[in-house]
Design a binder for these strands. Structure first.
Lengths: 356, 356
DNA sequence: TATTTTCTCGTTAACGTTACCGAAAACTAT
DNA sequence: ATAGTTTTCGGTAACGTTAACGAGAAAATA
C-alpha cells in the first residue's frame, strides 16, 4: 500500500553465474574474453548473457579497474591571430575536467605553428613519458607522420583532430570534411548572387597553417561554383600578413580593383575584413562569408557586416576526442571510424544560441 | 626505471578520515550534511575537505546508493504526418539506454495530439504511480498547466521540452526559442529575394498542434521581414488537411494565384510541398524554407527542391532532458535555467553531416 | 605408476561511497 | 547515585565488477 516500488534488482554478473551454475569469476572471464574457460561453459554463459541482454554496470567496472590512462594532447599554441586554437583548447579542458574524477590523466602540450622545432620537442616528450594515447592537431605533415609511426611502434594509440593527413592514425580522425566545407560556402554563395557575379577568395595569413587545409576548402568552393555554369568571375588574393594595417592596405587595392559581390575568407581571419568594412563605410559592402565562431568574428556578424560564419565546432572536436578515448579505454566500446563533424551555418539570427 | 607510473592514488573519504582522526562514517555524515556530528568535528572535517579540494568519486557513489529514480516521459504519439515526434522519441530512447545501467527507470507515455482525453489519461497514470520526475512535451496548454500544478503538490519534478508554456515547471524548459526560429527564417528569406518579393507563408495541417507554437514562429518571421522595409508582399495560407491529394489541390490554387518567390512552410510538413514541385516541374519552383530533419524533408532537400531546413534538434531535446535529470538526481548538480537549444540551418551541402 | 604440467574454475579482496546498527559518552531527570 | 535519554561516533555490510590466488581435475610426461 505504502510504496510498491518494485525495487527492480539489476540483472548482473551474479545472476548470470547463478543461471549458468558457475562462479562469477568464470562469468567475468567470459565477459572479458580471457582464457581459462572451456568452450562448453563459455557458450553456456554467452547464451545467457545474450538471452537476458546483460548490460555491465559501468560504474562498478570503472571503480574496480585501476584507471591509469594517461593522455597527451598536442595542439598549436593560441596566438592573437589564431584564436581558433583557444576554442579547441576550451573543449579539451572541459573534457579533462569531466574525465579527471574517473582517473584519466591528461597533459596538454602546445607548439608554435610557425616553428617546427617546438613540435618536435613536444612530440619527443610524449614519446619519452608513459602515455597511453595521444591526440594530435597536425600542422607539419611529414613530422607528424614520422611521430605517429613512432607511436605505433610504442603501442601508443593516436587520434587526429581538426585536419586529417595521409598516415592513418590508429583511432582515426575527428573533424570536418574540408572539401564539403568549401562546397557549403559555394552553396551559400550561389544563393546570394546571380549570373556573372564577381567573387573574391581571400587567403589571409596563409602559410601559418597546414597548406592542404586551405587548399582543400578552396578546391571544394571553386568546383561547386564552376559546376553551376553561371559564369562567376572568381579571383584569388593571398595576403600573407597578419597585422591589420598591412592587411588593410592590400584589401584597399584588391577591393577597389575588383569590386566583388561576394568575399569568401578561407579561414578564421574574417574579422579583419569585417573591421575593414566597418572602418570604410563609404565602400559598398559585398556579402562576406568566413569561418569559425571566434569572438571577433561573431562581433562583426552581429554588426551585420559578416553575413555567414561556417563553423566546425573546434571545441567539440577536442571534447569529442577525449570522450572517445574514455569510451575506448574505460568502456571498451570499439567505436571505430567516425563520421565527420557537422558543419554549422551561423548568421546574425542564430549565433546567440550556438554552442550549448 | 621500468615504469614510473606514479599510481596517483585518489584522495578519498578514507584519507580525509585519517587526517581528521575520525571514521569514514563521520566524514560521510559531514559530506552529506547529515546530523549526528558535533560542530567541532564537522568544522575539522570540512576544513580538510576544502584544503585538499576533495572530489567525490561519482562511480562509487552511484554504485553505493540505491538508484530508485523513476522518470515519466509524456510526449505526443508519432503519426504518419508528424514524424517529428519520432525524432524526439529517438533521442529519449538513446537517453534511456545510457541511463538504464545506472539504475534509472524510465517509462514513456504517448498521447494523441488530436485527443485531449488521451493526455489526461496518461497524466493521471503518472500521478498515480510513484515517479520522481516527469518530462512533458506540451500540446494542450490548460490541461498541462493543471497537471504540472498537481505534480508540484506531489513533489514531482517537472521539465518541459519542445515548447514552453506559461506555468513554470520546476526544472525549466529545454527547447528552441520559437520567435528566434521565425526570425531566422526571415533572415534567410532576406538573403534570397529583394524588394517587392512575394512571400507565401504556408500552415499545413495547423490545428494538429499547439497553436501558440506556430503563431510565435510566424510572428518572428513577419516582424523581421517588415522591419527591413523592402515592401515584401506576404500572404498566409492555412491548409487544414494532411493528405497529399487534398493539400495538392489547395497548393495548386494558392501557387497559381500568388506565384510566390519564397515559400515558408511553418512546420515539419514541408515534404508535401516538396512532392508538389517534384510532381509539377512545369511550375517554376520558388525558394522553399521549412523545418525539421525528417527523412522525407531531407529527401527533397537532397533533390534540390527544398532549399533550407531549419532544425531544432528534437532528438537532442529528449536526450538532454533525461541527461539533465540524471545530473540533477544522481550527481546532485544544481543546473538551473538552461539556454535555449541551438537553431541549425541545413542545406543540400551539409545535411549529410548533421546529427552526430 | 608416479610426477609434473596444463586446463578449468571457485574464492576472495579490493575499488570509494552510503547507510544502518549499535556502542560509548554526555546529559537529564529521578 | 541510578536509570533513562540524547548526542556523537565507529564499525561494517552492501553496491557490481575485476583480477590475483590457488585448488582440483585432467592431460601429458617420466
Amino acid at each position: 500500500m505504502m510504496s510498491d516500488d518494485k525495487e527492480k534488482k539489476r540483472f548482473g554478473i551474479k545472476d548470470i553465474a547463478k543461471l549458468a551454475n558457475v562462479s562469477i569469476g568464470t562469468v567475468d572471464r567470459v565477459l572479458n574474453n580471457r582464457k581459462d574457460v572451456s568452450e562448453a561453459t563459455r557458450k553456456k554463459v554467452k547464451d545467457i548473457i545474450k538471452e537476458y541482454n546483460y548490460q555491465p554496470n559501468l560504474y562498478a567496472r570503472s571503480l574496480s579497474v585501476k584507471n591509469n590512462i594517461k593522455i597527451s594532447v598536442i595542439i598549436p599554441k593560441t596566438s592573437l591571430q589564431t584564436g581558433y586554437w583557444q576554442l579547441c583548447l576550451d573543449g579539451i579542458s572541459k573534457g579533462i575536467q569531466e574525465l579527471e574524477p574517473f582517473g584519466i590523466q591528461t597533459e596538454v602540450f602546445l607548439y608554435d605553428q610557425e616553428d617546427v622545432h617546438t613540435f618536435l620537442e613536444v612530440s619527443e616528450k610524449t614519446i619519452k613519458s608513459h602515455f597511453n594515447a595521444v591526440v594530435i592537431a597536425p600542422i607539419f605533415i611529414e613530422e607528424t607522420e614520422a611521430f605517429v609511426k613512432k607511436c605505433h611502434r610504442k603501442k601508443l594509440q593516436t587520434i587526429y583532430i581538426n585536419s586529417d593527413i595521409p598516415t592513418k592514425s590508429t583511432l582515426g580522425y575527428i573533424g570536418p570534411d574540408l572539401n564539403s566545407t568549401g562546397r557549403l560556402a559555394g552553396n551559400l554563395t550561389s544563393y546570394l548572387v546571380g549570373t556573372n557575379a564577381k567573387i573574391l577568395i581571400l587567403n589571409i595569413a596563409k602559410g601559418l597553417e597546414n597548406y592542404k587545409y586551405l587548399d582543400t576548402k578552396i578546391e571544394g568552393y571553386r568546383t561547386y561554383l564552376n559546376n553551376l555554369n553561371k559564369n562567376f568571375r572568381i579571383e584569388v588574393v593571398d595576403i600573407p600578413y597578419n597585422e591589420y594595417t598591412e592587411v588593410e592596405k592590400e584589401l584597399w587595392t584588391s577591393i577597389r580593383k575588383s569590386t566583388p559581390d561576394v568575399l569568401f575568407v578561407t579561414n578564421s581571419r574574417v574579422s579583419v575584413v569585417g573591421r575593414f568594412f566597418h572602418d570604410h563605410q563609404e565602400i559598398k559592402k559585398p556579402y562576406i562569408i568566413g569561418f569559425d565562431f571566434l569572438e571577433a568574428n561573431v562581433d562583426y556578424l552581429s554588426k551585420g557586416i559578416v553575413d555567414f560564419l561556417i563553423c566546425q565546432r573546434p571545441d567539440k572536436q577536442g571534447y569529442f576526442a577525449l570522450n572517445y578515448l574514455y569510451r575506448f579505454f574505460l568502456l571498451k566500446e570499439n567505436v571505430t571510424n567516425f563520421k565527420p563533424m557537422p558543419i554549422d551555418i551561423i548568421t546574425i539570427e542564430n549565433y546567440m544560441f550556438y554552442e550549448n
